[in-house]
């Protein structure tokens, strides 16, 4: 299980970003995670709660968007979504596929923050 180290990197990156928004509170952290990224969402959520305690991310929600595996099929000359992770074949023509275009992402997409308005 490496979800804890992944969550720690998330906390670090978000904390760094927050430096530019003094006093801001984090409401949501949104991830983009490929279906082949080998992280388990339940473990992420579990670790997130623990790792964000007493940090500026405390109490925020972790929203995980799972990206399906997309491969390029030469025969069909386009990108296709494989039907299952147990078969890397084109769902249309049956061709074995090796050219992955999406599926291993492990990214912070964005964060939603609440900012107290400054009195001018």
């Amino acid at each position: 299980m490496h979800e804890l180290s992944i969550v720690s990197s998330i906390v670090d990156s978000v904390t760094e970003t927050l430096a530019a928004y003094p006093g801001a509170r984090v409401k949501e952290v949104r991830l983009r995670v490929g279906a082949l990224a080998s992280v388990i969402e339940d473990s992420l959520q579990f670790c997130y709660e623990i790792a964000t305690r007493d940090t500026p991310l405390d109490g925020s929600a972790l929203v995980v968007k799972v990206l399906p595996v997309r491969m390029h099929c030469d025969k069909c000359a386009e990108d296709v979504e494989i039907a299952s992770l147990q078969s890397f074949r084109c769902p249309r023509c049956g061709e074995p596929l090796t050219d992955m275009r999406q599926g291993r992402e492990l990214e912070i997409d964005s964060i939603e923050i609440d900012q107290v308005e400054e009195n001018v």
Partner: peptide, 16 residues
């Protein structure tokens, strides 16, 4: 209070 979205678009394992 204002709510805003900050785009990060950052690989989590970027350092590695």
């Amino acid at each position: 209070m204002t709510t805003r979205i900050v785009e990060l678009r950052q690989g989590i394992l970027k350092k590695n």
